[in-house]
Nucleic acid binder design. Sequence first.
DNA 1: CAAGTATAATAACATGGATAAAGTTTTGGG
DNA 2: CCCAAAACTTTATCCATGTTATTATACTTG
Lengths: 203, 203
Amino acid sequence: MPHRLVTVEPRRAFREPGVARDEVMFVRSGLLSKFKTDGAGRRQIVALRFPGDGILPREGEADYGIQAIVRSEVLVGRAEDFDPIVEQNPEMAKFFWKLTQRHNSIGYEWLVNCGRRDSVARVAHLLCETAERSGADVLADGLANPFTQQQIADITGQTSVNVNRVFADLERQGLIRREGKHIFFEDWNELRRVGSFQPGYLQ
Amino acid sequence: MPHRLVTVEPRRAFREPGVARDEVMFVRSGLLSKFKTDGAGRRQIVALRFPGDGILPREGEADYGIQAIVRSEVLVGRAEDFDPIVEQNPEMAKFFWKLTQRHNSIGYEWLVNCGRRDSVARVAHLLCETAERSGADVLADGLANPFTQQQIADITGQTSVNVNRVFADLERQGLIRREGKHIFFEDWNELRRVGSFQPGYLQ
DNA sequence: CAAGTATAATAACATGGATAAAGTTTTGGG
DNA sequence: CCCAAAACTTTATCCATGTTATTATACTTG
C-alpha cells in the first residue's frame, strides 16, 4: 500500500478538528492523541494511539483533531488505497476489527474514569494504563512519562493545577517517585488499587 | 440468519458485565444501555442503543453489562452465525463499520461531556442528543423522556440529586417544560447553546 | 387491592476541585 | 549558549456538586 512517513512534532496540532480527511495512519513510534474541544474551547483528549495503533479513515470530516504527545513517526496512507485492501482480505478486516474493539473498550473505561472516579483515582488509572500500553517493564524500569500535566488534565477532565496536587499526593503516599519526567512505581499494587485499574479491558 | 426475539424489561440487568458472551443483538424497539462499574461499584452508562443500533459480539468476556432503559424488543443471534455473513458481504461489512464509527464518535462526545462541561451543560447536551437520536419531531411533540434521573446521573457522571437540581434549573430558565416524564423544548436553540450541542458527530 | 419498592423533590451541610495569580524551573529554538 | 516560552509548583479563595436524610408520589408485583 502506498504511503509516506511523516514525523509529527508535539506542541502543535497535527490535524485540526472539523476538517475533511481521507487518511489512514499508523503509529510507528511515539505517541499521538485525538482531541476534541467543547463549546467554550476547553480541550478533552479522547484517545491515545501508541505504536502499532492506527487511526482509521472516517467518511466526511473528522470531528476530532490529532496532536502528538511526543515526537512520533507516522505512516500516512490514503483511505481509497486502504479500503479495498481491507475489503479483499478477511484477515486484515478481522485485525482492524479487533483493534477498533480494543480502542472502544478503552474509550468506555475512560468514560468510567471521568464520570465516576475522583481525581487521584483518575490519574492513578491513567498511569497504570499508560504503563501497560507502553509495553515497558514498569516494575523494573518505571515509566518515561510522556505527558505534560496539562495533557493529563485534558485526558482526565481536570485542571493542570489539580493534576499537580495529585502528583504531589501520590508521591507523598509513596505510590510513585519522580525523577524529572521519569516515574518509578514504588507500590504498583496499591497504585492499581487506588485507580481501580483492572487491565482486562485492554484485552 | 437464525435469531430469536427477546423482550427485555428495564429495572434488572439484562446482561451482567464480566461474563463471556458470543451474541449479536439488534434493537428493534425500546432503548438499551451499556454500563460499567468502577471499583467502588458506582455505575457509569457508557453507551445507548436505539432502535436500528446493534450490539456486536466481542471475543472473550464483555467488560460491560446491558440493561434496558425502557422495555425493548431485541433480536439476538449468535456470533458464529453473524461473523461469516459479514465476512462474505462487503456491503454488510461497510454498514457495520459505519455504525461502529458512529458509536465511536458518540463515545468521544460523551467523554467531552463528562470531562469538560458543567452539570447543566451535560444534561442539556444529553437531552439534545436523545431528542435527535430518538428521531421524534421534538420541536413539535417534545420528547418522551425515557430516563430516570438516576440514569441521567449515570450517563453524565453526576448524582441524581444534582440532576434533579439541574432539571429544576432548566425549567426555571424556560428552556424546557415538564409534564410528568414528557419534556417540551421551550427554547431549543438556547438549550443547544447551553449544552454546546453540535449534532455533526451523529453524522 | 395491598404492600413494597423505585422515583422524585427538597433541604442542610461538607468538600473536592475550579479559579486566579504569581513565582520557579525546565526546555528548546535561534 | 542564551533567551523566551512552556511547564511546573504553590497558595488562597470560593462555589458547584457530592453526601446524607426525609418526605411525598407513583409504580410494580404478589
